[in-house]
Design a protein around this nucleic acid. Structure first.
Lengths: 262, 262
DNA sequence: CGGCCGGTTGAGTACAATCAATTCTGGTGG
DNA sequence: CCACCAGAATTGATTGTACTCAACCGGCCG
């Protein structure tokens, strides 16, 4: 267990996080800025209203998307039950094709604004493409990490542990997106969380209730949670260590961000 | 639910699977051939005996590996309990770095032979690198798919369902590796499976027992399983559909395989 | 031959699923 | 601005499955 300095103090803010190659962070920043967007010439901007199915699994994948704002869920069905594989936020990318077909369905959980990029542009020899490729790869690695952490959550025995780990994860992701507030904002419903965590809605509700009664978390309304007792919370969720660090790079590439940044 | 022709009949053999871009399959083939290997000049060949920890999470990541033969487990600890995130086989790649450090530990479950590739070569401007990059990306996408399927398994309620889905997955992977035999060969212990599936060893044992007693599967010894009652098995595991198709391509690239193939 | 690791089996307990009734809440229209 | 409605969430009662602890088997290696 080597140095995990950053893990102890929740100091997982956007800056200072990527020692050498904060290029992805910068790329992301400029992508979700939206103004005079770098992708403007390659992509169009699309909107989805809450609840829209963006695409179904197996549909022809001619487009991929980069979220500018809003929350998207990637989901699939297993044995008649919906299972959410990932929540996607601003800067996240989805719709990478498998054999020209989408491998998993997606829907908008909130109103969503996104770039729609034709898959074909990835085969174009433009200079912008190199960075886009790199961004794509970095983001997919991100997704892999998150998926593995998701598996870790799903493997937990008790529902309140799952909930705590889930909240931990959302908090970390939120911090990475630059939100430094103490509150955890949940852009999905309880049902969504239950489908992600792999427990029944009833069990989820009880778990939330338990955590609140034990004065570990509070919430007013259903979309904003706050951790009151950090120590007890950590004991449940485990410290946010390796598996919780979600910004990944498959290989180093300290230079970057030429084309996309402008 | 559009055409899923390949999904119905288990015809997921190596050939005919990647309509246009069988390049990755070919790349993989030549990689695990080992003879006059394409990576010979870039990589060295290393061996690990069964049980060896190849690297720990957090260690400096100066090398990544491509398995030539054997089985590797990627694992991490959550709340004092070991959890296996993935089983890796011939052709699989592991050790991609996150900020220059490994993000998850790995160990050899069997004797393993692998290429050890210095991470630095990815930054070299050799023509071989382009294909290696592509291979790496394709493999990471693979891993993402598998991780999501893993999550699906973990989200199941009953232990025998998990076991059936696990066996299904192993069967599919085995088929993709070119093994057309009716038996499913398990290169990991029951404990390993339990750690992957997220149930106790006792429950796993009982689940195997149940499936055997119900004449859905058989096994002699512990490392080779056969499905007897395919229909009943499918009812448990669900048909091997989209989520079970593990060869992924993030974008199309019909040309390929120049440098690595020779 | 004996020990040890990996696996199976047994008994009792606890947690989460399910079904179902009730309450809450946020959005809509009067 | 308030009343109302429908979907979302909570809560209750019951059942079942997987967990734990623990004892026991069996094959493999020394």
């Amino acid at each position: 267990m080597p140095r995990r300095a950053s893990a102890t103090g929740q100091r997982v803010n956007g800056a200072g996080w990527l020692p050498k190659n904060l290029s992805v962070a910068k790329l992301q920043e400029s992508l979700i800025a939206g103004k005079k967007a770098p992708l403007a010439k390659l992509a169009s901007i699309v909107r989805f209203r809450k609840g829209t199915t963006i695409y179904r699994a197996g549909a022809a994948a001619d487009t991929f998307y980069i979220i500018i704002s809003g929350t998207v869920a990637a989901f699939q069905y297993a044995r008649e039950k919906k299972h959410i594989a990932a929540f996607l936020y601003a800067g996240d990318l989805f719709g990478a094709a498998d054999q020209g077909r989408y491998s998993i369905a997606t829907m908008a959980l909130t109103p969503v604004v996104a770039y729609a990029v034709p898959s074909s542009v990835l085969r174009m020899p433009l200079p912008e493409i190199a960075d886009l490729h790199f961004y794509l790869v970095a983001k997919i690695c991100d997704q892999l990490h998150q998926a593995r952490h998701h598996a870790l959550i799903l493997a937990q025995l008790h529902s309140h542990t799952k909930v705590a780990m889930f909240l931990q994860m959302q908090k970390t992701l939120q911090a990475l997106r630059g939100d430094r507030s103490a509150e955890i904002h949940l852009s999905m419903t309880r049902s969504n969380i239950a489908e992600y965590i792999g427990i029944s809605l009833a069990a989820l509700s009880r778990a939330f209730g338990t955590l609140k009664r034990r004065r570990i978390i509070t919430y007013r309304g259903r979309r904003s949670v706050q951790i009151i007792n950090a120590k007890a919370f950590q004991k449940l969720a485990g410290e946010p260590k390796s598996g919780t660090r979600f910004s990944v790079m498959p290989w180093q590439r300290p230079d970057l961000g030429r084309a996309l940044r402008h």
